[in-house]
Nucleic acid binder design. Structure first.
Lengths: 232, 232
DNA sequence: ACCTGAACACCGTTCAAGT
DNA sequence: ACCTGAACACCGTTCAAGT
């Protein structure tokens, strides 16, 4: 089960650290101090070692971050998925979403790539198969996957930023007209809706909203400026 | 038009810098060196001044970033919006999206807040009014706005990360089975779809996908595990 | 082969002093 | 009132040396 990455055992000083130990230590630091607290120096401290020792096992800090992400993805649960293709898609994305939501700092890294780590390829396969089973031709299935992924990244990004901003409630991000104190004369709808806004702030509607997007994609929302019509 | 923020003109040394000058200089630095190149020291250099001079005009670097975001939002275009509520929503989001896509580094900041800067409140109002006009009750209109915003943030996040990653093509983000070299025996759908994936990489389908999400939300995608049925 | 220590080129920010 | 200069407590990383 454990990766059998025996390096060539030449002569010389025997290793005290290992790549896995470095990555585990980094994970411990992130859990304790957050992603901003992750520094090479602190990881070294965690290992009772010197900062430069890490560089024997990871190329640089960026590579350590990627290794951290891989570690997280490998640990995603592997539940059975429902039969129904639409449900299968939603559950598969749910697995990804929930697994990453617990460590939302990964989102920045994640967005760059495509999440095709070997350990999640089965989920991506299931999602694409589900999209095809829902009647989408290959090209549209790929486009749909992309849109669903974009939505997922957005939800996670906002979730992360929201959690991160709490300690600094004194200064809002964008200079804000707190949305509850909007002038009903000039912005009537915003004023009418203000109460619901506050209530919605906390709710987790990821799967519902993802389902809406999925249904819209399956129905093949016709291009802009035209109304929905029956297609296929 | 220009903000008339005359500070009390007491006795003492006359100001050489101003908050606006600092923010403009910061914008110039970001344009030249990217968001990672934005340092207090460089902004000071841009102004032929010392790093600490900036702290008379902005509280700290975070506040400078927020000011930079405000500057950007204020400069969004203010086009006329179409009559049709669905089109109005799509165009309004398009204005926001396109304006921010040109400076995708803002996304991280943006995600934290709610984009209720006074200068875009009119757009947010229009979007909410459009959603209500599409038949959504207040609560669902707010939920829909949130979902559309999440999707927008996701698209921008991925766009930014994709642009940012180019210089380091040597090391993929997540360890990747490049998706074109997937084993068709074990991942048949992925293999079948691989060509379309490469083709889709570059296409900008933001508005189309946003329209799909919007239509799904208007149709009120029923909760998970149930199929679409007629509601209202 | 693996690790250490000192050093370099950076950060944001505080603090005391100049004009 | 506004700006400067030196200094502090950090970074990631290079380089030469130890075992």
């Amino acid at each position: 089960m454990g990766s059998v990455e025996e390096r060539p055992r030449g002569p010389g000083r025997p290793p005290r650290l290992s790549r896995a130990a470095v990555v585990d230590a980094a994970a411990a630091v992130v859990d304790r101090d957050g992603i901003d607290g992750l520094t090479m120096r602190r990881v070294a401290e965690e290992l009772d070692s010197s900062p430069m020792a890490l560089y024997r096992h990871v190329r640089d800090k960026d590579e350590l971050l990627v290794a951290l992400l891989d570690r997280l993805v490998e640990r995603l649960p592997r539940p059975d998925l429902p039969e129904d293709p639409r449900d299968r898609i939603l559950v598969a994305f749910g697995v990804i979403h929930d697994g990453l939501a617990a460590s939302p700092w990964v989102v920045g890294l994640l967005a760059a790539g495509d999440l095709m780590a070997p350990s999640v390829a089965w989920l991506i396969e299931e999602i694409h198969a589900g999209l095809v089973a829902c009647g989408l031709p290959a090209e549209r299935a790929v486009a749909a996957y992309r849109a669903l992924w974009q939505f997922t990244i957005g939800e996670l990004t906002i979730r992360d930023a929201g959690a991160r901003v709490i300690p600094r409630a004194d200064r809002p991000a964008v200079q804000t007209t707190t949305r509850t104190e909007v002038d009903p004369e000039v912005f009537p709808t915003l004023a009418a809706v203000a109460d619901h806004w506050a209530a919605a702030r906390g709710r987790d509607t990821y799967t519902e909203d993802l389902a809406a997007l999925l249904d819209g994609l399956i129905a093949c929302a016709p291009s802009f400026a035209y109304r929905v019509r029956e297609s296929r």
